[in-house]
């Protein structure tokens, strides 16, 4: 019998690039969002999870936070915050939805809300650099052990970055468990985990529970 290819855990870091685009009111935010690179849409809606281990703003979405805390437009903040970035087939579709919400909101407002005392919105994009963690798994038990101890950036890389920017719509974890180990139902459940309101540690915790159930009564080594 052929041994499955091991799962190699990578962590990642992001190098942030300032794009020189800054918005001072909601119309500018919309116009710049329309022409900003998709990498910037991704940065402000997805990689928030990589940067913020403590969720301190009201929402896990930079656009919503900015209009709520700097422009002090709570209504638009709430409307943008409810958009789940993981529910869209592409970043372009996510961008269209965000633009459409802002457009609809400001159509009824005169004047357009703007920053008076707060900071402008600065568009940023990031370059994600992958770094091997040195952890590899060949079996479900090993995978569970590695997952429990790996850096949170590894969860980001395999569960979020891989789906959105590396063309693996189910994420690396689900792909390997389904394809290499042949555990289709667990793979499907892992692919369904939505990180939007729980963050990276919630993904880890839910996966560990699923894996523990799959491993049955075996007491897994390692944390979690």
């Amino acid at each position: 019998m052929v041994e499955p290819a091991p799962f190699v855990f990578f962590g990642c870091i992001e190098l942030r690039e300032i794009l020189g685009l800054r918005a001072r009111d909601e119309r500018e935010l919309m116009e710049l969002l329309e022409r900003a690179p998709l990498g910037s849409v991704y940065y402000h809606t997805h990689s928030v999870f990589l940067r913020h281990h403590q969720i301190t703003g009201a929402y896990p979405n930079d656009f919503a936070n900015w209009v709520a805390s700097q422009v002090r437009d709570q209504v638009l903040g709430e409307r943008l915050a409810v958009v789940d970035p993981f529910a869209f087939p592409s970043l372009e579709a996510l961008r269209e939805e965000l633009v459409s919400i802002i457009d609809h909101h400001i159509a009824a407002l005169h004047p357009v809300p703007r920053v008076v005392f707060g900071d402008p919105f600065f568009f940023v994009q990031s370059h994600v650099i992958e770094v091997p963690t040195g952890l590899e798994a060949c079996t479900l038990g090993e995978f569970r052990r590695c997952l429990a101890e790996v850096d949170a950036s590894s969860i980001y890389f395999h569960a979020l970055e891989s789906r959105v920017r590396r063309g693996h719509p189910h994420g690396d974890f689900a792909d390997w468990i389904g394809q290499a180990l042949g555990l289709q139902s667990q793979a499907e459940e892992i692919a369904r985990i939505n990180p939007y309101l729980g963050g990276l540690e919630e993904i880890r915790a839910r996966m560990l529970r699923l894996l523990d159930a799959a491993l049955g009564g075996e007491a897994p080594a390692g944390g979690g």
Partner: peptide, 18 residues
Amino acid sequence: VFSLPAFAQQLPIPQFLV
């Protein structure tokens, strides 16, 4: 490389945040 986005200027070269 700039320390904050607010400290940067419009430039035709990539600008990183550190």
